[in-house]
Design a protein around this nucleic acid. Structure first.
Lengths: 223, 223
DNA sequence: GAGTGATTTGACCAAATGGTCAAGATGCAA
DNA sequence: TTGCATCTTGACCATTTGGTCAAATCACTC
């Protein structure tokens, strides 16, 4: 009987994992995110992930049955966080405030978790072999729902008529670009989102461009 | 003496390449673009590239000395085409027309050469190991030059004050997104840029958003 | 059509790598 | 302390893969 399912020792932990299991799985997932985001799935090696996690390759394979299993776990681990911001877009709020907040959240995700952004980009660029089903179901539903929110704002005359889906794509594209292409950004400007000042400037520029682009006056008057 | 430098037979061709060399190098570069853009550098195999080019691995390695050599040649081959559109941005033209034309060109590049876009994205996401020097010199110079063009339009009161570099990044981000993430786009909308109608819609949406975003009225009145 | 260099290939090699396994070390309950 | 399950590891294996090489074939010149 494998230890990952039926433990007798120190059980009753969250998710049924022992203290050691919990710790090591986290070490592995952190290392895996670093490795996979830098090298892609094929370029990553189990050996390096294990080394970065501070354990032997054999031990890593005791916790995850294969390289693909680590990869999937890593993807699943970040995907939830990655899609969270869109869920906060609130029909009843002010369109300008809501969209600005969304762009802000996404841009800070790019600043704080650029590795997650690159991992996701890599996965999708390879044809989304692992997460295509999720895109087609969960993400599709979420986008449809939020498109409707935007559509309602348009119907109510609160913003210019635009295709909501393209608006969402534009926000994804711009915010993630600063994470995924940070090396290029750094080569051209000498800075990237890890610089708080640059983050601030970028947020301001992008938000102004997109909000004005959809016919919302920005930045707001007064103050 | 290697055949790639000193040929006696059928010489005097463009670049000093024989007819056969010319043909095979092109076959290889096409196959390499396909393979590298789908699998990334590490995931690609010389064997598959050779197969797709219709020759043996040994023969391929007769034309390119190593996997890395093929990769570099492929990158160099597309880079020129990839950066060409920006060069056409013309100081003396109408800002709205010029920017719209640039966005249009970039979007059609994404539609017609999505593989090139993905190859480039992959390279940069991995830290641009091969083309970083080019980004830091040629591309940096080009961006600085075109930023000045935009800056001059702003000074002349022809458009709203925006950071020219962020504007360029936004155009790159949005247009390339539709190529690099085409699988996701397809999963969410059922279509991608290979559909002429979708290309048209996307071009219209993105152009309108960005031009209005920088304070240019779009689409133009009349007609 | 003979000769020469260009082109093509299969056989082969060495290194890297994902994964297995048996044995040893460690932690926990009694 | 003892006993048992968990945890950890080094040795090992099979496969993949980038690259070499000598030999065979082809294309062109004379």
């Amino acid at each position: 009987m494998t230890s990952l399912t039926g433990q007798t020792q120190e059980n009753s932990k969250p998710g049924g994992l022992s203290r050691i299991q919990e710790k090591n799985r986290n070490l592995i997932l952190d290392a895996a995110l670093s490795e996979f985001s830098r090298k892609g799935f094929s370029g990553a090696t189990v050996e390096r992930i294990a080394a970065e996690a501070g354990m032997s390759k054999s031990n890593l394979l005791y916790y995850f049955s294969s390289k693909e299993a680590i990869y999937n776990a890593t993807l699943a681990h970040i995907l939830e966080v990655w899609l969270a911001p869109l869920k906060t877009l609130n029909q009843d709020g002010d369109p300008a405030q809501e969209l600005a907040a969304y762009i802000c959240q996404k841009m800070e995700m790019s600043a704080n978790f650029p590795e997650a952004s690159r991992l996701f980009a890599n996965e999708v660029m390879q044809g989304a072999p692992q997460i295509l089903p999720i895109l087609q179901t969960d993400l599709k539903r979420l986008v449809a729902e939020k498109s409707l929110v935007i559509e309602n704002w348009i119907e109510a005359g609160k913003m210019r008529r635009v295709d909501p889906v393209h608006l969402i794509f534009t926000i994804w594209a711009t915010t993630q670009h600063y994470a995924d292409f940070s090396v290029q950004i750094r080569a051209l400007t000498g800075r990237d989102l890890s610089d708080p000042e640059f983050l601030q400037e970028t947020e301001t520029s992008v938000t102004a461009l997109i909000l004005n682009g959809v016919g919302l006056s920005w930045p707001p008057e007064g103050e």
